[in-house]
Design a protein around this nucleic acid. Structure first.
Lengths: 206, 206
DNA sequence: GTTCTTTCTTGATCTAGATCAACTTTTAGT
DNA sequence: ACTAAAAGTTGATCTAGATCAAGAAAGAAC
């Protein structure tokens, strides 16, 4: 029982340490700020296939992914378009809905079991009001996300299906293990059939 | 000559008022903050066709477009991909290069004569350090840009060339007047030929 | 393990939109 | 106003990748 308690406490702290490291990458918080800030987050474990947001709902939380993978997608004319994935160490959520607390167009669904931390809208806004260090973190976090999305836009628009496949494979081979390929296909803007054929060409077996 | 002086002063103040209105939309600055902040910007007029940034250069400024139109594009395998346009009231610049002061991949070029205000990197960072109201403005500005880019990504990925054409035409008919159609074609992810054919279909003459 | 469902594969066809080419209109420079 | 260059048009062809279809493999549920 001592062991169990230790384990629980260990995994718990681990997620929070993980969060703290990620926050500190962009803006340093004082010990006191961190204590207050971290107390606003709660930890949850989600089963594979759970949705954290569906269209029409308002996003109440901002998420930090401690472990596992989630995917974000929108449904257009009955077709799912995968827009991105969140891995351990990423922040996630239906950002537009969260920020103005209006209904979302997005789906975010777990692809595996996922351990997350989450913070409610009011708590986070409260933190932004209170701490300049956090306001700065928010600014830089958004800026980086923006830059990343700009790159991705160029990626999608400038390269052929074949080039997109290769570039993803070279840059992030690990996600071929983590994400079912029909989602990768959609993310890359091609059909599962095309994806499968390209995959076959590069690696005979694997 | 009195008239000329008045005119000059009027247009000058106008750009700064314009900027102030835009900043205040997202975060209110005090009179004193604004005085300091606005003193860091300088006004310039750019001729049609001028570049404010080219690949390999470091973006030293953040821009506010008071009047006119600019376009942002990247060159991939010798092909220009138009990523977006900035109109009056928009902020602009090669953001990734600006933020970490590393060389840019982007081109930003004026499409018409453009009146801008611009602020240097160090000045802007200084302002972020000094004023929480501005840090907040930066956070929210980035968030909105991010959300807009997310929408655009879905747009490009989910709709056919025809649908993209119609959606742009319905949502922003004015830009058909402002932007040469080869740039619009590129922005919409189609060739000028395809754009021309679609245009012909909808409007006989015009 | 056995069955049921979902994902992936492979082949055959089809099509939106690209490419190529020649011409017309518009814009810019002197 | 005149000329050269750039932008836009129109038609004929071509192709990357979609769609359709049917079978194989892999996961999930009992």
């Amino acid at each position: 029982m001592g062991v169990l308690a230790f384990r629980f406490s260990f995994t718990h702290m681990d997620a929070f340490d993980h969060l703290r490291n990620k926050v500190n990458e962009l803006s340093l918080m004082s010990e006191g700020e961190w204590d207050d800030f971290s107390s606003r987050w709660t930890q949850k474990t989600l089963k594979k296939g759970e949705f954290i947001i569906k269209p029409g709902k308002i996003e109440r939380y901002f998420y930090f992914v401690h472990s596992g993978v989630m995917r974000a997608f929108v449904l257009i004319n009955g077709v799912e378009v995968s827009v991105g994935f969140s891995y351990d160490g990423d922040f996630s959520g239906a950002y537009d809905s969260f920020l103005d607390q209006k209904p979302s167009d997005w789906n975010i669904q777990t692809i595996s079991e996922v351990e997350i931390l989450r913070i409610g809208f009011k708590d986070l806004m409260d933190m932004f009001d209170r701490y300049k260090s956090l306001e700065r973190w928010g600014r830089i976090f958004n800026a980086q996300a923006l830059i990343g999305m700009g790159r991705r836009q160029v990626e999608v628009r400038s390269f052929s299906a074949e080039e997109r496949f290769d570039r993803l494979f070279n840059q992030s081979p690990h996600i071929f293990q983590l994400v079912p390929q029909k989602y990768l296909a959609s993310y890359l803007g091609m059909t599962p059939e095309t994806f499968s054929r390209m995959r076959k060409q590069r690696m005979g077996k694997d």
